[in-house]
Design a protein around this nucleic acid. Structure first.
Lengths: 351, 351
DNA sequence: TTTTTGCACTCACGGAGGGAGAGTGCTAAC
DNA sequence: GTTAGCACTCTCCCTCCGTGAGTGCAAAAA
């Protein structure tokens, strides 16, 4: 976003280059990096002492920290942030890998296996946890509705949406409806709304309700009000898939049992993770939350890389990965990006 | 099953009593129990040396083992087995607790929330992982079927079952069917099968197919063959719910990260756990697998306590808990038992 | 024969001590 | 601005050792 120079006027090219080298090495090795090793690895013809001075500066700027007095240094969240924003060079994916991914997607039968494919691919390729938010249904196309009487005050609503998905929910009514009443209502709604997307359906029903009220047609009013309940707006997305949670158990930096437990708990609770994913919905590309940046304590030692996915020009949801802050961003970013695009394309194809 | 005396002719009352005391103490404290402590705790007027002799005998019989030379002793799987089969006195549940559980079940709206309630209650009360196998649907009552054409060779089948559950699947056909053809087929099948259970539906269809073939009615043959695919027998149960997995992270004996990872992986894979639950389907009450008894390596340090649950006299599935072998069997067993009965009753009520 | 006493022995655990290695910060020279 | 030199500070790992808990065995007591 903001170029590094503006953020840190003091940060000259050499310091940036050393920071980059340090972060890369730390991501690779997982050990604090000392001045000696950094001097050697950087390829710059500098003595460790000089490198030490630079490192001290970087520490003052809050980009590095030392775990203890005489270990090397490791990046802070801010350090990673600068690295990711301005220093990182992303490794483009090989054609073979792209083809391989595409093949997996082409095997999927229906939208929900597509989503599962996406999350399990994310996790297996990156060795992190893969997450895929379920697509919002606002712009799904209604094909057909059906109503069945259940009991005194309950009606089962079945929506066929996007040609091959079936949603059902139970709605509560103020009075009993007979099967034939419900059938007539369904015919009426189908005639009116079939082929429209759910957002439009809601609008159509509201208009229809108004005109029914003007005509004082109480039959229709009741039918529409009932139908409306079946189409009530759901929260934009209230669920997501996770794959490869257990991958996270293999990273030393997350191996504190209590912290890990809380992290897994967060996956189960879903709330916090969903909030985070929600933020990425509006972003128009890869979004990265590093460590504390997410704002959730359980994710303090984690980074989250997300990308929205879209079909027919419409953002449907978000997918991404969760892993330790020390992850191979250069590999992960293009994978998340590509997976989002492939998932979108595959959803399109199944239109 | 086999009384202890028959199994271990050498095992006199005193030895049994000491074993019981030892297991109880080990379950309570989690520390290997030494001769001194056991002598005191047993209340018997014996010196530690005598107790040592008894413990040595129990070790020879494979009921106890010592983690190392000079720790106390802990039960083996066989030790727990003897304890559970012949020594354990189950603690009956308080009325308050029963009522409390019942209240939770009465709040559930539909079968699937009932199952979730059961698994989360199991886990929260026992502090273990709660599992509930999804009910088999063989004896679910068909209410209505519906067919929608999808594409050249695909038809979407929607089954409404048990009055409030909706199942849908895509079936592949040999030719294109028009909407009106499918509607006629649905009417025909509904007239024939609505109100029957799925098992009966399959039988009815087969008979109908035979008579259609005799009449050479190719229309009907095609319709029935298509319908049949929508009712194909599913594996008896191919899924289960888990709640409170993370509880298992708090037990020291399971805290080896690699083992724990494999255990969680087994929950994800589902296959092994399902096999185990399947075995309990035929049992007619509480079933307990202790440590290696389960036959699955990942469960070596775990015990599984299960009970089938039934409604309308029909076994629908299995529920239970998974936890460390060192669990409070006296508390867990009645809880699993009661939960199974309450779940069955609640499913009955929603008939 | 069963139980107890006495005793030597084993092992895990925890703290103390010490050397090695890695790395730092600071100062003074280049 | 950069480097060399140096004292210093950590962690890590090893060893040593005392303590406490618990064992097994043999001989004495019941």
């Amino acid at each position: 976003m903001v170029p590094a120079q503006a953020m840190n006027p003091e940060l000259n090219d050499r310091a940036q280059y050393l920071l980059k080298t340090l972060v890369e090495r730390y991501i690779r090795e997982g050990q604090p990096v000392g001045s000696r090793a950094l001097a050697r690895e950087s390829g710059l013809d500098l003595s460790p002492a000089t490198v030490r001075n630079v490192m001290a500066d970087l520490e003052d700027l809050g980009l590095l920290r030392s775990p203890h007095t005489s270990a090397g240094r490791i990046p802070t969240a801010r350090g990673y942030r600068l690295f990711v924003d301005t220093l990182l060079q992303v490794e483009p994916l090989g054609l073979a890998q792209v083809n391989d991914l595409e093949k997996h997607f082409s095997r999927a039968q229906n939208p929900s296996t597509l989503l599962e494919t996406a999350s399990s691919l994310l996790s297996s390729i990156t060795h992190l946890a893969g997450i895929v938010m379920l697509p919002r249904q606002d712009h799904a196309t209604l094909r057909q509705v059906e109503y069945l009487p259940l009991s005194e005050h309950q009606v089962l609503t079945i929506l066929v949406v996007n040609d091959r998905e079936v949603q059902n929910r139970i709605i509560h009514t103020d009075r009993r409806y007979t099967a034939s009443e419900l059938e007539r209502a369904a015919n009426y709604i189908n005639g009116l709304c079939a082929g429209k997307d759910l957002y439009l359906v809601r609008e159509t029903l509201l208009e229809e309700l108004k005109s029914a009220r003007e005509q004082m047609n109480s039959m229709m009013i009741a039918a529409i009000e009932m139908a409306n309940k079946g189409f009530d707006r759901r929260p934009p997305s209230d669920d997501f898939l996770v794959a490869g949670q257990t991958n996270l158990m293999e990273y030393g930096e997350l191996s504190d049992m209590e912290k890990l437990r809380q992290l897994f708990e967060a996956f189960n609770q879903k709330r916090d993770i969903l909030h985070l994913l929600d933020q990425s919905l509006k972003a128009n590309g890869i979004q990265i939350f590093i460590g504390e940046e997410s704002g959730y304590d359980v994710l303090d030692d984690c980074s989250v890389v997300t990308s929205p996915y879209e079909a027919e020009g419409e953002v449907l949801g978000v997918l991404g990965v969760i892993g330790p802050t020390r992850m191979a961003y250069d590999r992960v970013i293009p994978i998340v990006d590509l997976t989002a695009r492939l998932l979108g394309a595959a959803l399109n194809k199944q239109h």
